[in-house]
Amino acid sequence: MELTNEEKQIFCEVAGTFEIPAGAYNFRVNGKSVGRSSTTNIDVRPKKDQSGLDIYIKKGTKNEQVHIPVAISATGLKEAVYNDFYIGDDAEVTIIAGCGIYNCGPSDSVHDGIHRFYVGKNAKIKYIEKHYGFGPGKGGRILNPTTEVNLSQNSEATLELEQIKGVDSTIRKTTAALENDAKLFVKERLMTHGRQTADSIYEVELNGKDSTADIASRSIAQDYSKQTFKATIIGSNKCRGHSECDAILMDQAEVHAIPALDAKTKDAELIHEAAIGKIASVELTKLMTLGLTRAEAESRIINGFLK
């Protein structure tokens, strides 16, 4: 793959490498695939009618990975990409997605990534998505991921969603529907600075008996940035749902947390917790008594919090 330094930097940040990874992959740069490979068990096919991929994971596939990172290094590029994942029964896979934008020009660059997962019975997926932006241009770096997870009986999905730096505006939508005994775990990490805005919206339907969902979001809002976290859990069967929003506020930033629990039967156990506040001064004091300066203490807490 021929990549510029900025593109390499993006792939390192979001996928951990700019080299060809083991397993199936598709690397997308400025709207085009620059490298694609399938394996015996994982078939990566470009869609015919729209931009994006159909990814088929065979029944019973174990310990395999798919990398599908996206880089945008052209200013003013706007794209919507549809990726659909069909995960066979009993399969266990890790999917590494993520997108980075380098913008050195005056126009906004936008990536809307729409990911749909159809997870078969007893299958287990781990989905890792990192978002990242940088570049000297005045144009915005805008990322709007939509993730839709359909979990069949006794399947499990773990989503690790992370936006650490440089994304000016984001609207993140995550929806999930769970059948009997299905499990969903979400770990979200968000950091905004400058005048960035981030909206993170979850809608989880616990339809199946003994289905469970656990959404844990941690975020830091700095400078003048604004964040909204909205999590709706709907329990229409005997089920357990938990959502948690823990935010550190700094400077003039704002965070809005809007929990919604919708229990349609008395057997639904739904919990929401939200805690928003500045770094407690006792936390800083404690670390200073261990020899750190105030600034060192602050960055320790921030880095630890987003881990």
Binding site: D246, A280, L287, T289, G304
Partner: peptide, 28 residues
């Protein structure tokens, strides 16, 4: 400052232990 005193060799174990979100025991 607190930091300079800590570096000089003074240590204080708090009456009320502090929660340090995101920091594990090994890191501490």
């Amino acid at each position: 400052s607190i930091t300079d005193r800590a570096k000089a060799g003074i240590a204080y174990s708090f009456q009320q232990p502090v929660h340090l979100r995101g920091i594990d025991v090994y890191t501490l």
